[in-house]
Simulated scan of single mutants.
Amino acid sequence: MSRLAPLEPPYAPEIREQFDRIMRGAPPLMLFRVMAGHARAWEKFRGGSLLDRGPLSLREREIVIDRTCALNACEYEWGVHVAAFAQAAHLTEEQVRATVLDDAGAACWSAAEQALIAAVDALHQRATLDDAEFKALAAHCDEDGILEIIQLCGFYRTVSYLANTLKLPLEPTAARFPERVK
Rank of each mutant, 00 (worst) to 15 (best):
K182V: 09
V34I: 15
C74N: 12
I63D: 12
P172G: 11
I117T: 05
L7R: 06
Y76A: 11
V96P: 08
E75I: 07
E17S: 13
V82P: 04
W78E: 06
T128P: 00
A26W: 07
E171I: 01
A84I: 00
L51P: 03
F177L: 11
R33D: 02
R180P: 05
R3T: 15
V64T: 03
Q95L: 14
N164V: 15
R97T: 02
Q95F: 09
L56S: 13
Q114F: 02
A115H: 05
A112F: 12
A98P: 03
E94M: 10
P55N: 12
A107G: 11
Q18C: 06
A83Q: 08
P172F: 02
F32S: 05
P28Q: 14
R16A: 11
A138L: 05
A26V: 06
C141A: 12
L129D: 07
V159F: 04
T158N: 10
G48Y: 07
A98R: 01
L7H: 06
P27Y: 00
L152Q: 03
T128R: 15
H81S: 03
A112T: 08
L170F: 07
R61C: 04
S2Q: 03
E77M: 08
I65E: 01
A84K: 07
L71A: 10
R67D: 04
R61P: 00
A127N: 09
R176N: 10
T165M: 13
R53M: 10
F45P: 01
T173W: 12
W42Y: 10
C69W: 06
V120A: 00
C108F: 12
S160V: 07
E94P: 09
D102K: 15
F45T: 13
A88I: 03
W78T: 04
M35Q: 03
A139T: 06
Q151S: 04
A136T: 00
T173R: 14
E143C: 06
I15L: 02
Y76I: 13
G154H: 09
A118S: 01
R59C: 09
E62S: 01
V100L: 15
A138C: 05
G105E: 14
E62L: 06
L51G: 09
A89F: 08
E148I: 15
L31T: 02
I117P: 00
D66W: 05
I15R: 08
A132W: 07
T68P: 05
V100Y: 14
A39E: 06
I149C: 07
G145C: 15
I15P: 02
R53H: 12
R126G: 01
H90D: 13
E14A: 09
E179W: 06
A26S: 11
